[in-house]
Amino acid sequence: MNSRRLTPSMSLLLAFEAAARHESYTRAAEELKLSQSAVSRHVQALEQLLELKLFRREGRRIALTEVGRVYQRELSEALGQIRNASMRAISHQSGGGFLRLATLPTFGSKWLLPRLHRFYAAHPRILVNIHSRIDAVDFHASDLDAAISVGVDHWPNLVSHRLHTERLTVIASPRLAGARLPLAPSQLNEFLLLNVVSRAEVWGEWFEQHGLDSRSIRPGPSFELTSHLIQAVADGIGIGLVPRILVEDELREGELVSPWPSIVSRRSYYLVYPKRNQSLPSLEAFRTWLEGEIADSHCDRN
């Protein structure tokens, strides 16, 4: 087979990859600083070269064909490797680099950002760009390098490093619970139980571990962000069940109280990233620093 057919030009590949990611010639054109017609011509030229139909029209929209989706998935991986190779070379030359990191919003604001100045002190030439993500990160559809996520030990096609076993703790405002402390677990149904939308099951888990009937749960308001739930608890709206790592400061300062010992969750915090990023210098430096910070914070509590 003609080798030229198997190695399309970078301009054709970049146009297709952007159009496939956005499923829009217009948005791809904005990203690539080209005209919409130029992106369309590049994609058509690629289809003619490969003798494949990569997109189909759906009204005014474009959508990937099945072969187009397979091609995009493998091409995104290959382009990511090229970008990372270039980034490593530039980083090696300058002694710096940057890291595009996704993190859970509340973990980022409550735990990571207050400590990040220590990373910059140790690595002043590396910049960490923080992106908040609640849902799982799709590394094929984004240019993110790594993510701090929470879940069970199942990260298909990703490298994962377990950072911290999640411990859930009941939190309350001293004004709400102070007069009635100590409380028996069975008294929990006297309060509104606040929850995070993505973790609606945690109260059932807590009741189960304490041998209580979960049907007695008195549900309260739900929140998309854990930080909003923590604020609602501090304002006396109800009681929350949150990862203890996110409320260490409030508990230490007496802004919140925790009537009972924490329970071990089924989940843990992980640093995850695609295999292609394993040797990225900025990621290696950040991972080493992050694991050290987690270890130090455990020592501080013991």
Rank of each mutant, 00 (worst) to 15 (best):
N2W: 08
S3T: 14
R4H: 10
R4T: 08
R5L: 12
T7L: 09
P8I: 05
A15S: 14
A15R: 07
E17D: 13
A19N: 04
A20W: 06
T26L: 13
E30Y: 11
E31T: 15
E31N: 08
L34I: 09
H42A: 15
Q44A: 13
Q44P: 03
E47S: 04
L49G: 10
L52S: 09
F55L: 07
R57V: 13
R57T: 08
G59C: 07
G59R: 12
R60N: 14
A63M: 14
T65Y: 01
G68T: 04
R69S: 12
V70I: 08
L75P: 10
S76T: 09
E77R: 15
R88Q: 14
A89S: 15
S91A: 15
H92Y: 13
S94V: 05
L99A: 04
L101R: 05
A102R: 05
P105N: 05
F107S: 04
W111I: 10
L112M: 13
P114R: 11
R115D: 10
H117N: 12
H117V: 15
R118H: 13
A121Q: 14
A121S: 14
P124H: 08
N129V: 15
I134Y: 08
A136V: 10
D138S: 11
D138M: 00
F139T: 02
H140M: 10
H140C: 11
A141Y: 10
S142K: 05
A146G: 05
V152N: 07
V152R: 14
H154S: 08
N157A: 12
L158Q: 05
S160R: 05
H161I: 02
L163T: 00
L163A: 00
H164F: 10
L168R: 07
L168M: 09
S173K: 01
R175W: 13
A179P: 10
A179C: 06
P182R: 02
P182H: 00
P185S: 00
L188T: 01
L192Q: 03
L193Q: 12
N195F: 04
S198G: 03
W203I: 05
G204P: 00
G204W: 02
W206A: 00
F207N: 02
Q209R: 11
G211Y: 07
G211E: 03
R215I: 00
I217D: 00
R218Y: 05
S222C: 02
F223V: 03
S227N: 12
H228W: 08
Q231K: 13
Q231R: 14
A232F: 01
V233I: 07
D235Y: 09
G236E: 06
G238Q: 05
V242I: 12
P243H: 04
I245P: 01
E250H: 06
L256Y: 03
P261E: 06
S262T: 02
S265D: 13
S265E: 02
R266D: 13
Y270C: 04
Y273H: 14
Y273P: 04
P274N: 09
N277R: 15
L280P: 07
E284C: 10
R287D: 08
T288W: 09
G292S: 13
A295L: 14
C299D: 11
R301Q: 12
